[in-house]
Design a protein around this nucleic acid. Structure first.
Lengths: 149, 149
DNA sequence: CAGTTGACCTGTATT
DNA sequence: TAATACAGGTCAACT
């Protein structure tokens, strides 16, 4: 497991984007925003067991200093019926030798949340798919010096 | 003096933007939205007597066909404690040889407004600062063709 | 042309 | 108290 996030209303709303907490992004997703990686794309595969591919555009917003998943995220939220309070978890696949990046989701039954804590393990559905991130920006403070890379 | 505007509730509210009346914008601010000017920035200086720089993003909204000051405006309103009915005035500095663009503000004491007219000259504070506008859009109907000018 | 996407912005909570 | 993170927002280009 790399990290997980409790989805905010904005993460599942009409903005169609997921904010990746900065420290998690910089610890775990650093390679995906290197210029070279951004140009090629990084990881690609299909949904485990179902054959559906998921791709997300991963980007950095200079103005708000934040990392986000954009394109593809809204469709994911819709298909998985995610809502505020649900969980997403990023991890490396243990099933494949190349440790593909995965995203897992878990519906949280809000009726079971008591005093900010879950009264029972979430069991309202969930799953995990291998994903592809492709970056389109570089890390802040780094200059694009031209071609090379 | 170029022109002045009585601030509306929207100009000082949460929208953080000042609508520049179109005829004033096109008469006085035309250069700031030329592509060339937009790339370089146009005017820059510091607040007279205090050393603080003010910059505003100047833009044209196609959807509403209006010219607006955006980024920076909210902070200006807050710092100067402007409210609806107060005045802002745009002018060219007479103190500098390069005729820098200035914005002045004047608090209007609403208690002195009688029947829509001021009962006395505004005296509740005010001032003037040199500002920088930088455009990020071009005039409607003009295409950016690349380099040129 | 309406919905989606991309890029930009800001107030507020937190540090 | 100054700086930062980010939830929530905007407009515009693209589809």
């Amino acid at each position: 497991m790399l990290f997980e996030k409790v989805l905010t209303p904005s993460d599942v709303g009409r903005l169609n984007r997921l904010v990746i907490p900065k420290h998690h992004a910089e610890r775990n997703f650093r390679p995906f925003l290197h210029p070279e990686a951004a140009a090629k794309g990084v990881l690609m595969n299909v949904e485990l067991g179902k054959g559906k591919m998921w791709r997300f555009r991963y980007s950095y917003w200079r103005s708000s200093q934040s990392y986000v998943l954009m394109r593809g995220w809204g469709r994911f939220v819709k298909e998985k019926r995610l809502s505020a309070g649900d969980l997403v978890r990023f991890s490396r696949s243990i099933l494949s030798s190349d440790k593909q990046l995965c995203i897992g989701w878990k519906k949280i039954d809000k009726k079971k949340v008591i005093g900010g804590r879950l009264a029972a393990p979430a069991d309202a559905g969930g799953g995990q798919v291998v994903i592809r991130l492709f970056g389109v920006d570089i890390f802040p403070g780094k200059k694009i010096t031209g071609g090379g890379g």
